[in-house]
Write a protein that binds this DNA or RNA. Structure first.
Lengths: 189, 189
DNA sequence: GTCTATAGGCCGATAGAC
DNA sequence: GTCTATCGGCCTATAGAC
């Protein structure tokens, strides 16, 4: 069937994506990917003529974290407390997956070429700008709004890397709202 | 000379450590390490009978981040502002290297066995407890002190991963004192 | 302790039949 | 499009001479 054919490439991509994230690019062989999909290496090379490296590029593209939805969901809040509560809620719902991707991009950063790095960096700059725009409602100095946006971003990502990627949650028994929430509780805004 | 002989093992270790951090464990071959040291593979296997895996274990041990010095340096501060300023100063001085190691441990987490993971996690729990103890001077609720310690840790590590490991500093042009300092500026402590 | 030589395996990639 | 078969190369690791 035609749809089977069309989907075959996507299937390879999603399997490769999972294995790359699980074991890392260098530790994953084309053989393993082909086996997991249930095709031969030769078939895989038919779909990805650029070989393993093209596979990586395709995974980069489709696994790139996207923060647009987070900003959109929290755009209409009228107080700082409501805004941060909304961000925290989003983080608890979808942050785990985003943080796993972030960890992978970070660990594979050495395998990216300058262009690919730029794209990933640009995503974060974009998020920072959007968040800063939201914060300007509650902060007089736009410079402060920008720095606060970066700080909040650091706080969330720091939590994600320590407690989820490093699995410290299994040792310490805290929740995002405890750690991030307490910092925010002490902020005069 | 005897000292040459004693140091040979350490030399291999430091070269391996650098290559592992630069390219990752899986992407670094024993051949490359031996070449970089200037010995043959066979000589390397004489010093590390457990092969590549033993090399990794040894690197884990000697590259493990240690926060003791940070806590000691900032232990005598009398206000929250002084304490955070001291932490920020330490971070600017030695944080870059610590954060590079953190990034590496994070990216190689899948290659660690449960025991090794525990040791790394334990280091962070220890730091958190020490920092919480310092914060109890300025915060009434010990529970809040603990959560604030975790939050501050998240903030610093988040900054390090985003702006240094991801090299966002080259795109955004901020400094740790801008981002972390602004968050702290808005805290009522 | 360090070397040379080599075993044995998995790697990425391709040719050519169907 | 998918297969079988295969190539040359690099990998980890070891045996044995010096």
């Amino acid at each position: 069937m035609s749809s089977d054919r069309v989907n075959r490439r996507d299937l390879i991509l999603s399997v490769a994506s999972e294995l790359f994230r699980e074991r890392g690019y260098d530790a994953t062989s084309v053989r393993e990917i082909a086996d997991a999909v249930g095709v031969t290496e030769a078939a895989l090379y038919y779909h990805f003529k650029g070989g393993k490296r093209e596979l990586l590029e395709a995974v980069f593209e489709c696994e790139m974290p996207d923060f647009k939805r987070v900003i959109e969901t929290c755009a209409d809040k009228e107080t700082f407390a409501e805004l941060t509560a909304c961000l925290l809620r989003q983080f608890k719902e979808t942050g785990r997956e985003t943080m796993e991707r972030f960890r992978w991009f970070l660990s594979e950063f050495a395998n990216l070429n300058p262009d690919e790095r730029r794209i990933f960096q640009q995503r974060h700059v974009e998020f920072q700008k959007n968040l800063a725009a939201l914060l300007e409602q509650f902060v007089d100095d736009p410079r402060d709004a920008r720095f606060l946006a970066l700080g909040i971003m650091s706080l969330f990502i720091g939590y994600g890397q320590i407690f989820w990627a490093l699995d410290l949650e299994s040792v310490v028994d805290v929740q995002p709202e405890d750690v991030i929430g307490t910092i925010i509780k002490y902020m005069k805004l």
